[in-house]
């Protein structure tokens, strides 16, 4: 597999007024494989959003390099190619919808790219179907729910036909139904269309659904691997101010109490299974 995004020793600090330059990214080296579903987890201010903004040249590194689809993001002349390859979806759906009709908004990116009208039509319909919003194509965005708006925003990015989508806390402002819909959409895009997905989040349950989980703290990558493996490092995660899913937490506590349970039972099903085997191994004595 080839890497769609490659950062090496990426450093970034915002220019500060009072002499102290807060370091936001402190040497991040990552390689995002084409077609993968990667979640980046960390608490506010850990640098995860800043990292996301480097993935399509909204920000340029203060040190180190970022390559997108083989192009150095510092290369100004290839900016459009970079942005076409990696689409971005942001937290607030209201602030990324440009037009006042859903389909017009989805058409925005292809229009900018100079795609012929007939093909724009095709791409718009296709993108709206992909996020399950085709029936709403003639609606005004402000009348949609948060989750629907966010899916329109995703369609707006899909219409560019990008190879990768980076989503910066796309569900932070949504209710549970909206969150579920958006997450399902993202997973489907990854699975059926092979779009690489980078999901920035602080929701443990969302991160658990990715193929690969990267945990960030203080501008560095502190853990990187399959979600099951990462979440079983309960203590390390706690140290950087993160909690783990309640299932893992419960198993960890039982383990602390001296019982032999696996820590990588993440889903409800797996956790129940693990508890079941534990209880069966130590059957209650019936009086």
């Amino acid at each position: 597999m080839s890497a769609i995004i490659q950062t090496s020793d990426l450093r970034f600090s915002y220019p500060a007024a009072e002499g102290v330059t807060p370091v936001v990214l402190d040497g991040v080296s990552l390689s995002i494989e084409e077609g993968s579903f990667v979640a980046v987890l960390g608490h506010n201010g850990c640098g995860k959003s800043t990292l996301a903004k480097h993935m399509n040249a909204i920000l340029l590194p203060s040190g180190g390099t970022v390559y997108v689809d083989g192009i150095d993001t510092a290369d100004d002349s290839r900016l459009l190619d970079i942005r076409r390859a990696v689409g971005m979806v942001f937290q607030n759906p209201d602030n990324q919808i440009v037009a006042n009709v859903v389909e017009e908004d989805v058409a925005f990116a292809p229009e900018n790219l100079g795609v012929p009208p007939a093909e724009i039509r095709q791409r718009v319909d296709d993108a709206l179907k992909a996020v399950n919003m085709y029936d709403h194509r003639e609606h005004a965005p402000h009348l949609l729910s948060g989750g629907q708006k966010q899916r329109v925003a995703i369609a707006g990015v899909i219409a560019m036909r990008p190879r990768c989508i980076v989503l910066d806390e796309p569900t932070a402002m949504l209710d549970p139904i909206g969150r579920k819909d958006v997450l399902r959409t993202i997973k489907e895009l990854n699975r059926t269309r092979g779009v690489t997905v980078v999901l920035i989040t602080h929701h443990m349950d969302e991160a658990a659904q990715a193929d690969r989980l990267i945990v960030m703290a203080k501008g560095r990558v502190v853990a990187d691997g399959a979600p099951k493996a990462v979440f079983s490092r309960v203590e390390e995660l706690r140290k950087v101010g993160l909690t783990v899913p309640q299932t893992t937490q419960l198993l960890w506590e039982l383990r602390q109490a001296g019982y032999d349970v696996p820590l990588d039972a993440l889903s409800d099903e797996e956790c129940a299974q693990a508890l079941y085997s534990l209880l069966m191994k130590n059957p209650p004595v019936t009086a």
Binding site: H43, N44, Q91, E169, A172, M173, H202, M204, G241, L242, T243
Partner: peptide
């Protein structure tokens, strides 16, 4: 607590 991280 909408939009806050676990610590917040």
């Amino acid at each position: 607590t909408a939009g806050l991280d676990p610590e917040g």
